[in-house]
């Protein structure tokens, strides 16, 4: 589309204000990856079917492939790049790494963020609650078990130290 038709979008991503000029029909997924360089957010279908593109909006799981950035001005968007505190990884990231819960690593960002939202709401979830919370995010590598175990390990270690 002509550059003149681009619109200014201001987003708050991982605690930082960001502004870009983009075509108004670009999805949040595309703006994050292509305009903001946050390629940690992945895509598997771009139709809202696999949740690979999951981010958090105000702490809740959100499909970035179906979200329009203009609707999200003023909201708090969290991507996988925003999970660590400085160079201190989130306990979920540590547990996923230690237990081999990230095989190819492609669904991992969405899986981690979805699990983060769960633990923020329910710090000691049951296995069934974990299954339920993660059931929208498809993983083809792990069979999900190491992921469940990693969420439980992170939960047992509590919230981040810092």
């Amino acid at each position: 589309m002509p550059i003149a038709d681009r619109v200014a979008v201001r987003l708050r991503v991982n605690g930082e204000e960001m502004a870009v000029m983009v075509a108004p029909y670009k999805t949040l997924l595309e703006v994050l990856r292509e305009d903001l360089g946050l390629t940690g957010t992945k895509h598997g279908c771009e139709l809202g079917e696999c949740s690979t593109c999951g981010v958090l909006v105000d702490g809740r799981p959100y499909l970035s492939c179906l979200a329009m950035p203009l609707d999200l001005e003023g909201r708090e968007i969290t991507t996988v790049e925003g999970m660590a505190h400085g160079s201190d990884p989130d306990p979920l990231q540590v547990a996923f790494a230690e237990l081999g819960a990230a095989q190819c690593g492609y669904c991992t960002p969405a899986m981690l963020l979805t699990a983060r939202a769960l633990l923020d709401r329910d710090p000691h979830p049951t296995r069934d609650a974990i299954k339920e919370a993660l059931s929208g995010v498809l993983c083809r590598c792990t069979g999900y078990l190491k992921i469940f175990e990693a969420v439980e390990l992170a939960a047992s270690r509590g919230r981040r130290h810092g």
């Binding site: 390629t39 790049e81 790494a97 081999g100 991992t108 981690l112």
Partner: peptide, 23 residues
């Protein structure tokens, strides 16, 4: 030994560069 694999932390932090992440 069940050690943490070398590429694990890149993967859990979104730093692994898959083909479509390249520009």
């Amino acid at each position: 030994k069940s050690l943490t694999k070398p590429d694990a932390f890149a993967k859990v932090s979104g730093q692994t560069r898959f083909a479509d992440d390249l520009a």
